[in-house]
Amino acid sequence: MTVGRPYRLGVMPGDGIGPEIVPAAVRVVDAALIAAGAQPPEWRELPLGGSAIEHHGSAIPATTLDALAAMDGWLLGPHDSAAYPEPHRSALNPSGTIRKHFDLYANIRPARAFEGGRALAPDTDLVIVRENTEGFYADRNTFAGTGEYMPTPDVAICMGVFTRPAIERIARTAFELARRRRHKVTIVHKANVLQLTSGLFKRVCLEVAEGYPDVEVDDFHIDAMTVHLLRRAADFDVLVAENMFGDILSDMAGELAGSLGIAPSINASDDRCMAQAAHGSAPDIAGRGLANPIAMMLSAGMLLDWLGTRHGNPRAADAAGRLEAGVRAAVRGGVATRDLGGSASTDAFTDAVVAQVSRG
């Protein structure tokens, strides 16, 4: 990737509110890159989700995966896999398939409250770094099939898998991120009970910490961590956790910051990155112009920041900053969707953000 060539970005609107919030994010990315003096991306829309089942016989066609491999990054809208017909409903969902196919091992989920929003903890400004390939989620723990099975109709068993290489790389991701923030990492685990599995996670993270003497480190059991987040979210900077613990904590942190509608994330490996809002497809409000596009917009901004860091592209990094600043300025100025206490439609809020970003 050179600074002069426009990025090639895949875009997958998905299901439910996806076809409303993903185009909103595309508009804001275009505006932010132009404001930063860069060319807007070359977008390529790819089939995924319910419409892909209807037209291609798969929620995530092989042609989509092949096309993604040639892209610089991707925007993935929410999917409603619970509503898919069988056998698609029981298969690994589209986002899980993409994460597994490209080994997107780091799920990075910031939670930062908005001035003018509805935060339960207005001082929240933290990032949860979630290991994305193993842990206690059974659909990521075997080469074929899943790590969940029933030897009898009345007994269900689930495997949790923890490996040193996977823990080492997610820990390094957390510590490198902390160096760009406030130089503090909190390890979340349950080593007092799960001494071998969660114990290995804690021990390896502490070993990695020895290579980052400039970063402060502490650790908490997952149950205690939920209490600490409720009582003093502002004290935390970067949290690193296995898959399920990180998923639970990030939803909680999103609500503390104001709403799951503002909760962004990226799924990344060393050379791939996918922007994906942390929330679901919200089929109950789909097509009504009520959806909050902030999480998708901020996820796209995280993708720009990742691209700028990976490729040494200051314009992409600048665009990422402009995008987030524009979103925050819109909310601070009183423009917000219903879930944040406002009355703006999805399109009206997007118009306000584009205006803020373009104004610079």
Rank of each mutant, 00 (worst) to 15 (best):
M1R: 03
T2Q: 07
G4H: 06
P6Q: 12
Y7V: 09
L9I: 01
L9V: 07
L9S: 07
G10E: 03
V11M: 03
G16Q: 02
G16V: 01
P19R: 00
E20W: 00
P23F: 01
V26L: 13
R27N: 10
R27A: 12
A31S: 00
L33H: 10
A35N: 13
A36E: 11
P40T: 02
L48P: 13
L48E: 14
I53T: 05
H55P: 12
H55G: 13
S58C: 15
A59H: 06
I60H: 08
A62K: 11
L65V: 03
D66C: 05
L68K: 11
A69W: 01
M71V: 07
D72R: 01
L76V: 02
G77R: 05
G77Y: 04
P78W: 08
H79S: 15
A82D: 04
P85M: 02
P94D: 02
R99W: 12
K100Q: 14
Y105W: 15
Y105I: 09
P110Q: 02
R112C: 08
G117Y: 03
R118A: 13
R118K: 09
L120D: 03
A121L: 13
D123Q: 12
T124D: 11
D125S: 14
V127Y: 12
V127I: 12
I128Q: 03
I128H: 02
R140Q: 10
A144R: 12
T146R: 09
P151S: 03
P153C: 13
V155H: 07
V155S: 07
C158W: 10
G160H: 12
V161R: 07
R164W: 07
P165I: 04
I167A: 04
E168F: 01
R169L: 08
F175L: 03
A178G: 13
A178D: 11
V185M: 00
T186C: 15
H189T: 03
A191N: 04
N192A: 11
V193T: 12
T197R: 08
C205V: 02
L206E: 15
G211H: 09
Y212Q: 02
P213G: 09
P213H: 05
P213W: 11
E216F: 15
V217Q: 13
V217K: 13
H228T: 06
R231P: 14
R232G: 14
A233N: 00
A234V: 04
D237Q: 02
V238I: 14
L239E: 01
E242I: 05
N243S: 08
M244A: 12
F245R: 10
G246P: 04
L249P: 00
S250W: 00
A257P: 14
G258I: 11
S259D: 01
G261Q: 03
I262R: 00
A263C: 00
D270I: 05
D271L: 05
C273E: 01
C273W: 04
G280C: 14
D284Q: 01
G287A: 02
N292G: 11
P293R: 08
M296V: 00
A300G: 00
A300V: 02
L303W: 10
L304F: 12
D305R: 07
T309M: 07
H311V: 04
A316D: 03
D318Y: 03
A319N: 00
G321W: 07
G321Y: 11
L323K: 02
E324V: 09
G326M: 09
V327I: 02
A329F: 13
R332K: 12
R332C: 06
G333I: 06
R338T: 04
L340E: 09
T346D: 06
A352C: 02
V353M: 11
A355L: 06
V357R: 12
R359H: 10
